[in-house]
């Protein structure tokens, strides 16, 4: 069964003459353990799509199903619980709480869920998996950008969610750190079985995904499997078609 099922999703901002269609009847499904990169020029609607999948925004029409449950009509409290327990988020600007250390930041979703007892141990476990065991007690201002994003990865994975949404996770990192985070995301998909939906501008980062969805003007223009012979060429052609190259 698909972890994510998007059906005819439309999002229109504003009304009347100022109305802007950010998403126009988009449909997409993501399977368990699949790593999908969403690419497209600025303003094509990729972040809007991610926000709607994450239950951060509400669609104008259409439906989003997470694990078979339609979240489009959910109330705020239910959406909050969904995000807390079943979805992990990674943001471009890390968004760590500056006054908490790495372990406390990574443990936040569990702490919010009242699982204070196990939160710290599980956070430490995940920090170890993302290679930050030795910086567990450092606050964000004592960590590099790459390290902060790894803490954010640990936070996204700590609740064992089926789905991780990453919005430009490498957009604020140097190339070396970007490569590390990309590999971590791939690992989350391959080893830990998470479905990953990642929005990115960077083709090098996108190449770590198993599938690339290309968008333009609020619609999906191509959906390409990566890997195997001719994969690179196919992606190149698709990106050119999408106007990314």
């Amino acid at each position: 069964m698909s972890i994510v099922e998007v059906r005819e999703l439309t999002k229109i901002y504003g009304t009347g003459e100022t109305a802007v269609t950010a998403l126009d009847h988009v449909s997409l499904s993501v399977e368990a353990g699949e790593f999908v990169a969403v690419m497209g020029p600025s303003g094509c609607g990729k972040s809007t799509l991610l926000n709607l999948i994450g239950g951060l925004d509400t669609p104008t029409s259409g439906a989003v199903l997470i694990d078979g449950t339609d979240i489009s009509g959910m109330k705020d409290d239910d959406l909050t619980m969904l995000r807390r327990r079943r979805i992990g988020f990674v943001f471009q600007f890390f968004n760590l709480i500056p006054v908490l250390d790495a372990t406390e930041n990574a443990a936040l979703p569990l702490t919010l869920d009242g699982k204070g007892g196990e939160a710290s141990a599980r956070a430490l476990d995940w920090l170890g998996k993302v290679g930050l065991a030795d910086r567990a007690r450092n606050r964000p201002d004592q960590l590099s950008g790459g390290q902060q994003q790894r803490v954010a990865m640990a936070r996204a994975l700590v609740t064992d969610p089926a789905l991780v949404l990453a919005d430009e996770p490498t957009g604020n990192l140097d190339s070396h750190s970007a490569e590390e985070i990309s590999q971590l995301l791939r690992q989350a998909s391959d080893e830990w079985g998470r479905a990953i939906v990642m929005v990115t501008h960077d083709p090098k980062v996108a190449m770590h995904a198993q599938r690339i969805v290309l968008m333009r003007d609020g619609a999906i223009v191509d959906d390409v499997k990566v890997g195997g012979k001719g994969g690179q060429t196919a992606i190149r052609a698709a990106m050119e078609k999408a106007g990314l190259l």
Binding site: D77, T80, R83, R84, F89, I97, P109, L112
Partner: peptide, 10 residues
Amino acid sequence: GMLRAIGASR
């Protein structure tokens, strides 16, 4: 915003 995104209630 981040806290709300990762599941903090109002």
